[in-house]
Design a protein around this nucleic acid. Structure first.
Length: 171
DNA sequence: CAGAAGATCGGG
DNA sequence: CCGATCTTCTGC
């Protein structure tokens, strides 16, 4: 299997990446020979400082600063005091954007994904091209991909909450 | 420095 | 529908 390069995340636009990640394989090496491989089945795109659903809309902060770097890095953050959200930084430096992994074949729901992968603060900024703990491998999935509005961002207003920037395989 | 809210989930 | 649970951001 081919590991997805950092360039893939830097050179493509976030919507293409979010959609393109569907069907690719998320690999998590827990060490001691324990490896989890599962295909990505649901993602969302968060794009730029104008996107009011994107954390970068508040400018660069201690939490979101990784999104302002070149793509190909992991952006994790704790939500509701208990769930680690797994995101991949996309696009070039100073173009803050990311793709959220909302579901893999193993389990559905971003909070569950973070729990299954045993994510924590130490994954912040992890390099997907060189990490020995988490990376993406090329693969495809034989299913139709559909786009819908993103979940849980009603606060972002009519324009942004209705963008069809969530990608999921048709069941 | 206090208070509110959050890219969620599971139980009732 | 609501509580869990705690970091981050905002406003005073």
């Amino acid at each position: 299997m081919n590991r997805i390069s950092k360039d893939y995340f830097i050179e493509n636009d976030t919507l293409s990446i979010a959609k393109g990640l569907i069907g690719k394989t998320l690999v998590r090496d827990f060490g001691k020979g324990e490896i989890l491989k599962s295909k990505i089945i649901e993602t969302e795109a968060y794009i730029g400082e104008q996107d009011l659903a994107c954390h970068a809309s508040k400018g660069k902060t201690e939490r979101n600063k990784i999104m302002f770097e070149d793509g190909g890095l992991v952006y994790v953050y704790l939500i509701y005091g208990m769930y680690w959200m797994l995101n991949f930084v996309t696009e070039k430096a100073d173009h803050p954007a990311a793709a959220l992994i909302r579901g893999i074949e193993e389990c559905s729901g971003p909070g569950r994904v973070g729990r299954l992968l045993k994510l924590d603060k130490s994954f912040y900024g992890e390099n997907l091209e060189t990490s020995n703990r988490i990376w993406i491998e090329d693969s495809i999935i034989q299913s139709k991909i559909i786009a819908t509005p993103r979940i849980g961002i009603d606060y972002s207003g009519e324009i942004w909450k209705n963008k069809p920037w969530r990608f999921v395989v048709e069941k």
